[in-house]
Design a protein around this nucleic acid. Sequence first.
DNA 1: TCTTAGCACTCATTCGCCCTGAGTGCTAAT
DNA 2: ATTAGCACTCAGGGCGAATGAGTGCTAAGA
Lengths: 359, 359
Amino acid sequence: MELSERKKRILRAIIESYIATAEPVGSKSVAEFLDRKLSSATIRNEMADLEALGLLEKPHTSAGRIPSPKGYRFYVNELMEAHKLSVQETERINQALRLKMEELDRVIDQAGRVVSQLTNYPAFALSSGMERVTIRRFDLLMVERNAFIIVVMTDSNVVRNKLVQLPSDLTEAQLQMLNTLLNATFTGLTLDQITPELMRVAQHAAGDAYGLISLVVSFAMEVLESLEQRRVHTAGLAHLLELPEYQNLERAQPLMTYLSDVQDENRFPVPQGGPMRILIGPENVADALKETSVVMASYDIGEGMRGVIGVVGPTRMDYAKITARLAYFAEGLTRLFNRGELPGGKTDSDDRKTGGNAL
Amino acid sequence: MELSERKKRILRAIIESYIATAEPVGSKSVAEFLDRKLSSATIRNEMADLEALGLLEKPHTSAGRIPSPKGYRFYVNELMEAHKLSVQETERINQALRLKMEELDRVIDQAGRVVSQLTNYPAFALSSGMERVTIRRFDLLMVERNAFIIVVMTDSNVVRNKLVQLPSDLTEAQLQMLNTLLNATFTGLTLDQITPELMRVAQHAAGDAYGLISLVVSFAMEVLESLEQRRVHTAGLAHLLELPEYQNLERAQPLMTYLSDVQDENRFPVPQGGPMRILIGPENVADALKETSVVMASYDIGEGMRGVIGVVGPTRMDYAKITARLAYFAEGLTRLFNRGELPGGKTDSDDRKTGGNAL
DNA sequence: TCTTAGCACTCATTCGCCCTGAGTGCTAAT
DNA sequence: ATTAGCACTCAGGGCGAATGAGTGCTAAGA
């Protein structure tokens, strides 16, 4: 799509005005905005052209124009200028990043909340990319005669544990043997590879300890499964109600319901591709999002794991500002996870470097 | 407060009708409801009395009556009949309880979500009663020369771990020594007791390993702190918008905002007293809740820990049904945590008893 | 003395109506 | 190609009448 310079200026004026006010914008105010170099009639003609191109829409005959999803897409791809973060903004984000980021789950949850506060839109956060988790080692720690702790560590340095209570007693030596066996059998395997068949092999090898080892293996499987299972955290839903487009309850409710329920589903707009991704209106797959835009950024957790944070809002969204903030925040998270340092100000994990996260 | 039998019947009819419809109820419909044994005029007189007693209110002159908070309180205390759960209801709750309940944090979160689905109200969940956590044992597991896993177990069988990376290398023997030292020094202490002073003593004893041990101790403190720190999980906020009283955005928004933000605060209606607690309207401390009711139930996680789940809704709430469901669910959770068994249907943890929860 | 029928009164809500004003498309003049 | 002018459209706000649910009070009946 090639537009004249003038058309681009007009389109941009309309979109930015609409983003700011949520009101359809008329020819007169565009003329005003462009320093009255053109009359409103001329603008009207140009606007009619832009409408014919599918970049603008009319809510009704005698209202101004509003951008169509296609218009936003064009704006995002070609017209938008990167928003420069102010000192206050970067400082605020850095501040937020200095939170205690301890357990992975909490970080994700926390990050979502922070992003929501940063943008005044509902935000979501999820982790992904853990598909290829392999087991690095097991440790079994005796607690009582009939209870031990199982600690599983993956190659991405994620550690999980669980207390296991047994119906029968166990000696330290037995536990030791079991531990060795587990490490010998399962180290280096991914979840896919630990098929039921393999389980059977292991059980066979164990002889008497059949029940015991199957118990332990099923625990380990559970741990790995829980790592692979994505959880969508949402935060700041209430921000939705501040927006003029959601003053209308019929509009707000379905979206609200969708956003509070996706937590359970794994179906959420998956971010394939670059570190920054924008889905405008109908570009979203979920029905509830057809009239909203989703902006998301991914960040690096380290050791091959990635996280995604993003916001959901009306198609009229300040893409420039949001992308800037999100990108900066995601970048900060990446830095935090990988080197534990932040620009200016001492972080919580400066001295105590924590490579992976245990949860 | 002593009321005639007739007044009680009338009050109850009004409250239950209002709970069901959210519409002010007039004398005529009450007469209808009471099988026309009395004329509407008589009912009117009685209603005037009830209003004088502060149990009813008039939204305006020519509307019917609605219950006042005091009216609800009277209803809850004296008039309400326990709601019998239907087979479907109990089955649904049992179903929900059969979820994988692995890590404590997730259980709490999960429980909130389930309760919300069960009641169609926004729900919250929090854990409490972990104030007296004491350390039971430490384990340090070598991973690499400059990294180890620290596993802390408390006397309530909660296990947490973290991967610690060091600036310098460490031998297995050193780690062993450190481990012994930690156990000798800190076992059996609560968070309060591990004062900075004690830390200093430990560091002194350690001699060279000063930095190392302080690192480990500060981590242990973190773990204990995170156990003590309450997190409020909320779920099902969107249900609010389904209710007629929150069709009005001015009403919905502040409550919505409050509920999405309490997650950060520790200030939330704390449930002192019995297993079931109801706070009606102005009985709530938080301003945002002055026109809502909160119903909560506590359950036993075992080992001295308790959790609380509850719902938030308009003062017009089906207290009978909600309390029944909440009580049943809480009871189920208690059973699940303590014996891992559920009525009817095989649970996930039937055969593999899990005394505590590791996270 | 309690109950009830009847009646006048109140008041939130709904509906229809008109008016206003922003904005458009088209045409004719520059 | 641009612009001024004009007729036309239409959402939204304001206003007043009609509606009807519900009340309080009074007076008669049990």
